[in-house]
């Protein structure tokens, strides 16, 4: 069985994993809305900037993005200013995971907005609403229900992808149990980790299912 110290280490690893996934889904969703609005905007600059953003962050591995932020930025800083600075690995993880999630969520949000019937925007305009008013009061609220399932998907993916942070000196859940397994030669620690991952994803699944039903009250 686990001793007190091991238990605390596993708990700490779980918290790291959870923190990164939750921060990434929240900031990813906020940036994602902005990028999605850029993608559907008629403004050429906004449109190509958001296209480029999605192209880059979806097209390169998350691990690479993590390396760029954690390893490359301090070196670039050193080369250009001659000064060194230490970078907090947790902050790097927050930034990399949020930026990456934003790219995926932007496409999900864009598709959800475009799936709303065009008559809704017309009706809003005919009632004198501006584009912004129509988006915030009429169109975007209708996407919430359609966004719940893919958002739950993304959160579960993020939760498992956090194991990548073991490469930048962080102890997430998986790295914590791996260290215990190699120190003791016992594989049973992996079972504990699997149980915790499953426990967390079960909660996400149940909560998101309930939310989806709740948001769908207005449908027949």
């Amino acid at each position: 069985m686990l001793n007190e110290i091991q238990l605390q280490a596993i708990l700490a690893g779980t918290i790291v994993t959870l923190q990164i996934a939750i921060v990434a889904i929240i900031f990813g969703a906020i940036f994602g809305v902005i990028i999605a609005l850029g993608r559907i905007s008629k403004n050429k600059v906004a449109n190509s900037l958001s296209w480029f953003y999605i192209w880059f962050f979806r097209g390169t591995p998350l691990l690479l993005q993590l390396f760029i932020i954690y390893y490359a930025i301090p070196i670039i800083y050193l080369d250009s200013t001659g000064m060194t600075f230490t970078i907090d690995p947790m902050l790097c993880a927050y930034v990399a995971f949020s930026l990456n999630a934003a790219a995926y969520l932007a496409e999900i949000i864009r598709a959800a907005i475009e799936s709303i019937d065009g008559g809704q925007m017309e009706a809003a305009k005919a009632l004198g609403m501006s584009y912004r008013q129509a988006m915030t009061k009429i169109i975007i609220p209708q996407t919430f229900k359609r966004l719940v399932a893919p958002m739950g998907n993304e959160l579960i993916l993020l939760l498992k992808d956090t194991s990548l942070v073991s490469t930048i000196a962080l102890f997430d859940l998986l790295r914590t149990v791996k260290t215990m397994a190699s120190a003791t030669g016992s594989w049973v620690y992996y079972i504990y980790a699997a149980a915790i991952y499953l426990f967390l994803t079960t909660i996400i699944q149940v909560v998101f299912d309930k939310t989806e039903k709740k948001l769908g009250v207005y449908e027949r």
Partner: peptide, 27 residues
Amino acid sequence: LGMVFQNFNLFPHLTVIQNITVAPTIV
């Protein structure tokens, strides 16, 4: 110019009374 559409285009996420009050309130 008030407009009534062939396919109604009511806002499905709002109740009947909210459909009527939303535009006067925000516009």
